[in-house]
Write a protein that binds this DNA or RNA. Structure first.
Lengths: 237, 237
DNA sequence: ATCTATTTGTACGTATGTATT
DNA sequence: AAATACATACGTACAAATAGA
């Protein structure tokens, strides 16, 4: 466990790591060892230069590396410096999407995974959702209760309907699951934002999706686990 | 879709992005626009300096940023330079684990997710697994067919049993799913590598796990979807 | 509101390392 | 073996930002 590669899991291919990376690794392990928390300050540049016997430029490249990975943030001025930072979700999400940019992620893959995940998730949630959360789901559902009037409208509805899934994931109280669902939604948004324009406006599909989400909410409310699973399975177009 | 934030989804908090990051963003969009492929070369440093009107140091910080995110690799010497790179899985995995380092991921979360994913995965695979792949699963199972003799042995077996899940995920032919399962395995390895030492050696649990994995293979072979799901549900300790 | 001190950010010139031809 | 083309590293000088007096 660690900021990446505190032991050997490597980022830059084994080869001879250049100095900035060596230092970056050193600082990462240092963070772990010292148990530094977000907000804690790293030594200022001159001190790091002395500590690692390197020039300013090299030290700066190092801090850029850590910053690019979201592990630190830097501020100028007095009381400024490099500070430990808890990687934000948008950041993590961005970095991960870089991976799938080249490793062709298809919408099919995303839908298949969602299909694997959500029905069981819904089933496990049935009967355990507070009335407040149910209301939230219903409020979201309202946003696309009317058939889309035009392409732009449909696009908006599509984004809103994705939000439904995010709320659902939140309810599980599982950081990892939540992250994955939100990431999938992000991917779907990116992947479909253009594609959708060419697709036919399918009224029937919209109606079915809407109905099933409505059923799902009811099943969750009344603790009908099996029904929740079934409705959820039908929620995708 | 893009190397992160080619439009607005931002990594560095909206504020005034410093120059290296601006250039990094510029290069990212440039990569997308030009449709550059892994292996394609970026202009050499002096040219980039001219292109963006910046000094060597700043350009270098920029390339370090891209490199730290796994988007380029650099080589020295003639024919050297910065080259577009398809982010590797270990790299992506490392970067993502940084996120969960501070956002406390518990083993409970991981197990819960696996519990959500794998039974359905197994069910969907039943009857569609080649004899060769089944043999591979069985070969893996052999590695821990005998009760562990000591703590070290048990640790090894634990790692091997995790491999079982990776093979299973591979069979789905879903990049995203595969990544997630492997990532979870990685997290579990990191999270348990120390913890396990304190846990009692539980013979009975081992035996059950072993038996269920064996059952699972048979169910997969014979296309008994429901049984595969059931066996899989019992595969965790 | 202005100045001052502190700390990061940028620029440039030069020297060294490294792989290809 | 030598020349070449490229990244790597250093040192210094100066610019920009910001907290605090």
């Amino acid at each position: 466990m660690s900021p990446a590669s505190s032991r050997s899991s490597n980022a830059s291919p084994s080869a001879k790591m250049r100095r900035p990376y060596k230092v970056a690794e050193a600082i990462k392990s240092w963070i772990v060892e010292q148990g530094l928390q977000p907000g804690d300050k790293l030594p200022p540049e001159p001190e790091l230069m002395a500590l690692f016997g390197m020039s300013k430029g090299t030290i700066r490249e190092t801090t850029r590396v850590l910053e690019a990975q979201g592990l630190i943030v830097t501020r100028t001025g007095p009381k400024g410096g490099a500070f430990i930072n808890a990687v934000s979700e948008p950041m993590a999400s961005s970095l991960l999407s870089n991976y799938f940019f080249f490793n062709k992620l298809s919408t099919k893959d995303v839908y298949q995974l969602r299909r694997l995940l959500e029905p069981e998730l819904a089933a496990s949630l049935a009967g355990n959702v507070s009335e407040q959360n149910l209301a939230e789901l219903e409020a979201n559902l309202e946003k696309y209760s009317q058939p889309a009037r035009d392409a732009e409208d449909e696009r908006k509805q599509h984004i809103d309907s994705l939000q439904f899934h995010i709320i659902l994931a939140e309810l599980a109280g599982n950081e990892l699951l939540g992250f994955i669902i939100r990431f999938m939604v992000r991917m779907l948004t990116d992947l479909t934002v253009y594609r959708r324009l060419y697709e036919p406006h399918n009224h029937e599909l919209w109606e079915q999706g809407f109905r099933h989400q409505k059923d799902l909410i009811e099943a969750l409310r009344e603790g009908r686990s099996a029904d929740a699973r079934a409705s959820c399975k039908n929620t995708w177009k």
